[in-house]
Design a protein around this nucleic acid. Structure first.
Lengths: 199, 199
DNA sequence: ATGTAATTTCAGAACTTCCTGAAAGTTCAG
DNA sequence: CTGAACTTTCAGGAAGTTCTGAAATTACAT
């Protein structure tokens, strides 16, 4: 039996772990494993290689790759003089994170925001509805803010973004500093509906 | 049939949406709906009320509530002079977000980090292993950084954190400002073996 | 055009998760 | 103690999902 022979134990562990994690997220176990395998591989792999290493049916791998492509987590490449399709994963982990967040946002956050916005347009007639609407507004506003912020971070060059992360605890101090310099007015009031943009 | 009668259409929509979202995340459909119902309700609800409104079996609701408690998304309350258990959701959405992130981290991120750390301790013997380890290190470092950063933000008072978000696009400018003031050295080098570091 | 290598689709088998009602457990008033 | 009011557990059926091999499709070399 051509078990995951060539795959060193370290890599097997990694692949297995992503399988488990996959099921905890929306993504399924085999898709998680396929991604993990491609991610740690030093070169692009074709579907047969993946099927063999992971012992999945060829067609299962085909499905999985399609799913991964739809998440933009793997790229389709072609080797010169080989008809088969090879897949690899973008190397930059920050880029991976960015793409994943973007995709999740498109699929999950945007529909939620849009549902909330629709609900907020209704005129509540009962007290219960009025309360429900207030809660929905809170939720909408938080998500909206997080998204705006994330957009901005996303636009930064990767090294700047990481630098921002790296600043860690300094952040509060910088904020205070900024307040002092810009004459304290820099804080937007909780809700003027959208982006007044800091002074 | 005692359909979700009392529930106004707006709220039904909201509850249903969270059901769908629930399945996209690890959480299941009924748990999502139960949470949504509690979240928009103006007062704490008991299990029977939930079962009736959502038309789930009593036991299903019991399970769901247990799950939600384990995620710290709902709180158990007691009404004076009533033996039944009532549940409500924390009101502050930022707090909800914080708790959710914390819980996800404990359950998903930490095990991943720990798996990666273990793998990084091994001495690679082949080239493939060496490469795999390098990829794992990249991943480890990014997650680790994001977590450190998130820890720091979490420690901020909610209004400061939201202020930070609100700053949005200003962030780059502040960063530059800080660099100028602190004499440019302020950025911690990611990790000796990584990050060329912004000039 | 034809044949071959590769990929995709698909129907159903295998597996997993979810949900229910019945039974057992817990708590508390009287 | 007893029994009523709740809550939890659990076995098994229902529903949903994943996985497979066979068949269909596509892509290309000759």
């Amino acid at each position: 039996m051509p078990l995951q022979d060539h795959l060193p134990p370290l890599n097997r562990e990694f692949v297995a772990h992503f399988g488990e994690m996959g099921s905890k997220w929306g993504i399924n176990r085999t898709v998680g494993q396929i991604y993990a395998l491609i991610f740690i591989s030093p070169r692009a792999l074709n579907a047969d290689e993946i099927a063999e290493q992971l012992e999945f049916s060829r067609s299962n791998v085909s499905m999985g790759l399609k799913e991964l492509q739809s998440w933009r987590l793997v790229r389709l490449r072609h080797q010169p003089g080989d008809r088969r399709e090879y897949f690899d994963a973008p190397a930059d982990v920050w880029e991976i994170f960015r793409v994943l967040a973007e995709e999740r946002r498109r699929r999950e956050i945007e529909p939620t925001l849009s549902m909330l916005r629709t609900a907020l347009l209704e005129t509540p007639s009962t007290d219960a509805e009025r309360h429900a609407q207030a809660r929905m507004r809170d939720m909408h506003d938080l998500i909206d803010r997080l998204m705006t912020w994330f957009d901005d971070v996303q636009k930064l060059a990767p090294e700047t973004a990481l630098q921002l992360m790296g600043m860690g605890a300094t952040v509060t101090r910088v904020l205070e500093l900024k307040d002092r310099i810009t004459g304290k007015g820099g804080v937007r009031p909780a809700r003027a509906d959208k982006q007044p943009d800091a002074a």
